[in-house]
Design a protein around this nucleic acid. Sequence first.
DNA 1: CCCTTGGACGCAATATAGTTGCATGGTAGT
DNA 2: ACTACCATGCAACTATATTGCGTCCAAGGG
Lengths: 152, 152
Amino acid sequence: MKRDPGMSSCRDYAALLGEAGLAVTANRLRVLEVVGGATYPLSAVEIHRTLARSAAINRVTIYRILERLVHHGILERLSTGGRAFNYGLAADSDYQPHPHFYCTRCGRMDCLSPASLPVDTTWLQRTFPGRIDKIEIRVDGVCKDCLKKGDA
Amino acid sequence: MKRDPGMSSCRDYAALLGEAGLAVTANRLRVLEVVGGATYPLSAVEIHRTLARSAAINRVTIYRILERLVHHGILERLSTGGRAFNYGLAADSDYQPHPHFYCTRCGRMDCLSPASLPVDTTWLQRTFPGRIDKIEIRVDGVCKDCLKKGDA
DNA sequence: CCCTTGGACGCAATATAGTTGCATGGTAGT
DNA sequence: ACTACCATGCAACTATATTGCGTCCAAGGG
């Protein structure tokens, strides 16, 4: 089944971990559920805050899990316009890469549809002398909620 | 005179500051010369290291100058794939916005030509409900120098 | 059944990047 | 000269992320 940005995932996270050769632990599943269930990429702090509500977990554990999952291509690490990173499910065959919107006022990140900002990478792919791992497109600005508040 | 990404600038930095209503100080000029003279965007640390070689300057001063220049649209703040920001001359009428390449191995950032990665923003501009301030495109990967070293 | 081994996790310490508060000194206008 | 302003320096601080090290548990071999 297809996933769209903004839609909560229905992947089998245990299988995902297994395929990557990673041990299936409760904490890893919890992280994946939170990240996969979010409609936008989350920061390590947000993930930690969320998980800590249900059961104690060390923030270092979060960082290490995120690092591992990114390294194995399960999650994707995105830079925001701020100082932290946000994490989302990595793009794969049925989850298209897509640009993100970062609100510089509230710090919230949102997924944009892949079609909203079409990019032609063929020329770059053909001519770039190094290795290209990924292309990150981020739109910075102020979200409509913050605009409204700013008016008030 | 036109500037291309990667080409050192020939702008009159004092005039740039003046037009923005900012005092023309030696430190600000020094920062602008380093940033404008670089062929790729620099981090605050790099700028500080460079300037400190010729005359002592506090790192906070660098941060404050960068902040001010970005705020007045003279410089542009770019996120790298890492934890720091890089700074370059802001795009203006004769200096086109362009994507950047970030080498995840050596941390160097390079400017790509605007034409290398064409993006169509019209749809987004028309339909996005918030305010769009800028669109940042970053290509992450390994530069050819690092690839070569990796082979050796 | 015990022993070893390796990975996951926790905790404390450290690193890195950036920010804030406050003092000082110079400069322009009065 | 007096004042107000602003750039700068310095120290302390914040936020985010990473490292080192120890403990615990679970799997596998004797």
